[in-house]
Computed example of a mutant assay.
Amino acid sequence: MRPPSAPPAPPSATGVPANQHAPPSRAASSLSHHALVPWSTGLCDCCDNVNICCLTCCCPCVAFGRIAEIVDRGSTSCGVSGALYSMIFCMSGCSCLYSCFYRSKLRGQYFLEEQPCTDCCVHWCCETCSLCQEYRELENRGLDLSIGWHGNLERQKRKAAAADIAPPIQQGMKN
């Protein structure tokens, strides 16, 4: 116990700024409003979609390029991302050093849980399974990765335009 005349102990350091009146950062406030959700499929559910599984096993650079184009919202093309992925693989033999960052970006965009372990560990241990899971996640969210980001935007615009067209008014019975 502390003697009554001793000054109060300073608060412990938490790493949080002491300024209570400052507004929280956008990133912190957006994460606090969203609960993390599980992935729509498991890491080892590769055989659920044989086409994705074959694409990822035979041409991981294409699968990664498609994922990266969607995650980057069209700012980098599938071809550029896939070529960079291939180049990193050829130079280092370890393309997971690049692809794990896109898993993190994907999780951040859709508030997905970091499972079954950290993003880099998932890519390091099973690059193919992680790319398959990311591809399936985007498809399960209604995106067609084969048409790219801009193709998905156009498809969304066409659907919105079709929904805006009012149905024809049917005439009532006339005497």
Rank of each mutant, 00 (worst) to 15 (best):
A18M: 10
A18I: 04
N19D: 15
H21F: 13
A22M: 11
P23Y: 00
P23W: 09
P24H: 02
S25T: 12
R26Q: 06
R26S: 09
S29T: 06
A35W: 08
V37C: 10
S40V: 06
S40T: 15
T41G: 01
G42T: 04
G42C: 05
G42P: 10
G42K: 01
C44K: 09
C47T: 08
C47Y: 13
N51Y: 05
N51H: 12
C54G: 06
C58F: 08
C59K: 13
V62D: 07
A63T: 04
G65A: 00
I67T: 06
A68S: 11
V71Y: 03
R73N: 02
S77R: 04
C78L: 07
G79D: 02
V80S: 09
V80P: 02
S81G: 01
S81M: 09
A83E: 04
L84N: 04
Y85R: 06
M87L: 14
C90L: 14
C94T: 14
C94N: 11
S95F: 00
S95P: 15
Y98L: 15
C100W: 12
L106M: 04
R107W: 00
R107L: 01
Y110H: 15
L112G: 00
E113A: 14
Q115L: 09
P116W: 03
C117P: 07
C120N: 01
H123P: 08
W124P: 00
W124R: 12
C125A: 08
T128W: 02
C129W: 01
L131G: 07
C132W: 00
E134V: 03
E134A: 15
R136K: 08
E137V: 04
L138Y: 06
E139Q: 12
R141H: 08
